[in-house]
Design a protein around this nucleic acid. Structure first.
Lengths: 214, 214
DNA sequence: CGTTACCTACCTAATAGTAGGTAGGCTGCA
DNA sequence: TGCAGCCTACCTACTATTAGGTAGGTAACG
């Protein structure tokens, strides 16, 4: 029951939200130090270098993601529900601004200038995500719930791209609302949410349910 | 015919490709100086501050984009062709690695830590792109070429998100090919191309053409 | 003669990272 | 019980390097 040394967890959590805001080069040890309430040098005690910090950060992120997929495999047997739960998860993260972007999606955009060890972790996340989504589409097709117009892997890639691009759009719309109030009139507030930027269900054909009225 | 002072253009071009590689905080005046073959201080002669540089860079980018949309309006009357030309443009940029990412898409990912003036320009690009795509879908629906399952603006947002997310995936796969040769066996080389990550045609329903065999 | 385009030489702040020290908490042992 | 030894977690104070930016000079040119 001893929450012994949560400091390194605090550092990781802080670094995560800083990365979500501005990527690898968008934050410094000084930024973390100020938030966590510790000295710069103390961060080096926990994470000798910035690469160490971000590599373990992304590794943990990958672990959480894998755990999330496994959880969805257990709790939501229906591929439809698995996909909508996945999107719903990000809907929530964006809506409550707790983590309005995928750490790996943001880092992926800077991939060419990322330290090799970090880049490797980021690539692995994309692999994991892509493989899980592919398996969902495969099973959906096998069970007869999805009528795919492309191979499962292609559908998975398209789905993933739609979600990642939706995060970008949501960020832009969110920032627009913050700084440009004229924007309010043109776009409803809900545009900051993921679901209004992607049409995940149009990347595949749903076989009609019996009760499909809502 | 005088190509007077191409230096500032060189600086802008160099900065553009550096931003495409790693975003706003991923490059410095020193990087530009080395590539252009000029001293750091001389860049300040052309662009007093980094914000000036990037703001005009994004402004020009927006102008080029608007010009491109106008060109597509003239040359490709069919909304189908307009959309596929747009995607094709990015296909080419990614395939020949000339500009494997949209400047504004990359900057948008760092939006929260961007200087306000740059952030504003980035938002304006998204607005322009979104409006143009909306008009394409609108016209396509009016003419009877598209059967939309969502309002034109929603289709436009989804289309845009698919393209942006596809750029991300293409970047990850490209980097994977560079550094992880085992990857070759699993994913064909073409996965670095946009078209294999998005299914733009599945975001809307095409009314069947007469000759729809290819 | 003034403007443009560049230079050298600097500045200040911030970057990641290091050296070395201290306070306190365990462990082992006489 | 008390003390030695060690470890963890932090600190202050520093380093070298890089960041964006400035001051002032010079050479070419219309």
């Amino acid at each position: 029951m001893t929450n012994l040394s949560t400091t390194s967890d605090d550092i990781l959590a802080c670094a995560r939200s800083l990365i979500i805001a501005g990527g690898y080069n968008g934050f410094s040890y000084a930024d973390i130090a100020e938030v966590v309430g510790i000295r710069k040098a103390s961060i080096h005690h926990h994470f000798p270098s910035k690469v160490d910090l971000v590599r373990t950060l992304v590794f943990r992120y990958r672990e959480e993601a894998r755990a999330g997929f496994a959880e969805l495999e257990r709790t939501a047997a229906d591929p439809r529900d698995q996909l909508s739960s996945y999107v719903g998860y990000w809907e929530k993260c964006i809506a409550d601004a707790s983590a309005p972007f995928c750490v790996c999606a943001l880092l992926a955009s800077e991939l060419p200038v990322l330290p090799a060890e970090v880049a490797g972790e980021v690539r692995l996340h994309f692999e994991t995500l892509s493989e899980w989504l592919t398996s969902v589409f495969e099973r959906g097709a096998e069970v007869g719930i999805f009528r795919l117009s492309n191979p499962p892997q292609a559908e998975a890639e398209a789905f993933m791209a739609a979600v990642h691009g939706g995060m970008l759009s949501a960020r832009v719309h969110d920032e627009a609302l913050r700084h440009d109030h004229r924007f309010d009139a043109r776009s409803p507030l809900q545009l900051t949410q993921l679901g209004h930027h992607i049409r995940p269900h149009s990347t595949y054909q749903l076989v009609d349910r019996e009760n499909d009225d809502n």
